[in-house]
């Protein structure tokens, strides 16, 4: 699997990722990251704010200003998703992340299951962006050999411990199969 060279960060992703001891690996995968202003405003606790500040100071992260044209597309995505009962709730910050990722042809990094499921059910609304949660990004890191001393199950255990975020064992197995790291 190849990833775009840039990514868009959703708040729920960075809130967890910032707690992981190897969070710096994101800079080895993507040459630059973007975050819409409205999404940045959702981050208010110390650890993720510190991580974001470091990424900005490194020149890696750019905060994307608010544009009304993105907002109209985001509202359209929210309404389309609400019509499908299989898709959990999507709010404007993550919808704007999706629209920005589509505009930039970036990877959207999010833990929001509404966005993740909308992506799988309505690909045309996201293309050429791709959507990844931390589990898939960890699998990509492992498959690329960026943590050669750590197996995928060990990496998952480490991430779950650092972030207090638990994954579904079935999804972990499915993602390991998908990335060829069983």
């Amino acid at each position: 699997m190849s990833l775009p060279s840039t990514c868009v960060l959703d708040a729920c992703f960075i809130i967890d990722w910032s707690r992981w001891r190897r969070r710096h690996l994101i800079k080895e995968i993507f040459s630059a990251g973007f975050m819409p202003e409205i999404t940045l405003r959702e981050v208010i606790t110390e650890k993720p704010l510190r991580a974001l500040r470091e990424l900005i100071l490194d020149g890696w992260l750019t905060i994307y200003p608010h544009f009304r044209e993105l907002e109209e597309e985001a509202v359209s995505l929210i309404l389309d998703a609400r019509r499908d009962p299989r898709i959990p709730r999507i709010d404007p910050p993550e919808a704007l992340c999706s629209i920005l990722a589509r505009r930039l042809g970036s990877a959207l990094l999010t833990e929001n299951r509404g966005i993740i499921r909308a992506y799988w059910l309505m690909r045309e609304k996201f293309s050429p962006a791709i959507v990844l949660n931390s589990l898939r990004l960890l699998a990509y890191i492992c498959a690329r050999g960026l943590t050669p001393e750590t197996s995928f199950p060990e990496l998952i255990e480490e991430y779950e411990r650092d972030s207090n975020h638990s994954f579904s064992p079935s999804e972990v197995r499915a993602v390991a199969r998908e990335f060829g790291i069983e």
């Binding site: 729920c12 709730r89 207090n164 638990s166 994954f167």
Partner: peptide
């Protein structure tokens, strides 16, 4: 498991609500 729905019920900022989920040992995804 719907984060946004639960966050709106809590009427709390996303970041703080996730922190509460973490402390309650129920933060999953």
């Amino acid at each position: 498991g719907d984060l946004r729905e639960a966050q709106h019920i809590a009427d709390a900022p996303l970041d703080e609500f996730i922190e509460v989920l973490r402390r309650a040992k129920v933060w999953t995804g």
